[in-house]
Design a protein around this nucleic acid. Structure first.
Length: 323
DNA sequence: AAGATCTGCAACCGCCCGTTC
DNA sequence: GGAACGGGCGGTTGCAGATCT
């Protein structure tokens, strides 16, 4: 028999998440940090599967997520990376720090596939056209792989010089193709609060009555979160009104957001707050460097042409060696 | 205006892998 | 060593809103 489901199917709620559920989840993660998803539903009272909680967090509530239209630049990155890596959306997402793999996957399936097909049908002779001679396409791909590999090595060497990440030996950055090279240090919880704040704004606009009736529940959750934070955060105090606490939790300019540095204790360990940030998000300075290196190489055709000597690498070797 | 069809996206599902006991 | 578990991944589905007829 296969493994049992991650949670009991009975009594598990499915479908779209409500703002209340979002708030409960975010409050809990803010307090305990992400991870140990199995315990999330039981500890929060959410009638959700642990997987559902994790997905909701990673695809929607996690800090640093950018939503909305993809830029041309992002589009090109996705096309390039898809050619390089195939449908490994998590790996692709690691190079687009603000996008989730789900987002990229959706965008590929709904937009880019069609776009590329159109280009192919139209006998468009750009770099991605299937009408291009196979050898040339293959050579370009080989070059891309080689350049990506080079960028990765470069980024990893930057990694080594990073005192912060050095404080916690990373087994993820180097060896596993699915792990995201980006560890968010500069990002804060406020970013996810921003997502929820926007959500609530829309929610209130769209259904003021419902928002009104549920506001107590929301504030109760927020109160609870604020109360929980008061024990761990120096910013929390008992004299705040519910509204103030609400503002604090969902402020777009939360003091947390400016206090984005990672605090390390005297033993060199990350504090609980930081491990939340460290674990969960993607963008940071390090990412920026890595991203721009890869970006530059991927899109610098001239560079690609100037690296003809690197092309001899076989596709297989490149793909294996890349990771 | 109303029904049909299309589109985009959030969420679910099942499989896989690494870790723990 | 292997079973159980937790978490991550890619593929797929279902639904709501947009567009078309």
């Amino acid at each position: 028999m296969g493994r049992p489901p991650c949670c009991d199917k009975v009594g598990v709620k499915k479908g779209p998440w409500t703002p209340e559920e979002d708030i409960i989840l975010v409050s809990y993660i803010q307090e305990h940090g992400p991870g140990n998803w199995r315990s999330v539903p039981t500890n929060t009272g959410l009638l959700r599967c642990s997987k559902s909680c994790r997905l909701r967090w990673t695809n929607y509530l996690r800090p640093g997520i950018k939503r909305g239209n993809f830029t041309d630049h992002e589009e090109k990155m996705i096309i390039h990376l898809q050619a390089l890596l195939g449908n490994r959306w998590a790996a692709i997402a690691s190079y687009l720090p603000q996008r989730t793999d789900n987002d990229i996957k959706n965008y590929w399936n709904t937009h880019l596939k069609k776009k590329l097909k159109k280009l192919q049908d139209g006998q468009n002779h750009d770099g991605f056209s299937a009408s291009q001679p196979k050898g040339q396409w293959e050579r370009r791909l080989q070059t891309d792989i080689r350049l990506a590999k080079q960028a990765l090595c470069e980024a990893l060497s930057l990694d080594k010089s990073s005192s912060l990440t050095d404080s916690k030996p990373s087994t993820t950055n180097v060896s596993h193709p699915y792990t995201r090279p980006h560890q968010v240090i500069g990002s804060t919880y406020a970013s996810s609060a921003e997502n929820i704040a926007r959500l609530l704004e829309n929610w209130k606009k769209n259904s003021p009555k419902q928002a009104q009736t549920n506001s107590d529940t929301i504030l109760m959750s927020v109160d609870k979160a604020a109360a929980a934070n008061s024990s761990t955060s120096e910013g929390a105090h008992s004299e705040t009104t519910p509204n103030q606490r609400f503002d604090s939790l969902f402020s777009l300019n939360s003091s947390n957001s400016s206090d984005s540095s990672v605090s390390v204790d005297e033993n060199g360990n990350l504090t609980p707050e930081t491990s939340l940030l460290h674990d969960e998000s993607k963008p940071n300075m390090e990412n920026q460097v890595q991203f721009s290196l890869l970006e530059k190489w991927l899109f610098d055709d001239g560079a690609a042409q100037g690296h003809e000597d690197l092309i001899n690498l076989s596709l297989e070797d490149s793909a294996i060696g890349l990771f």
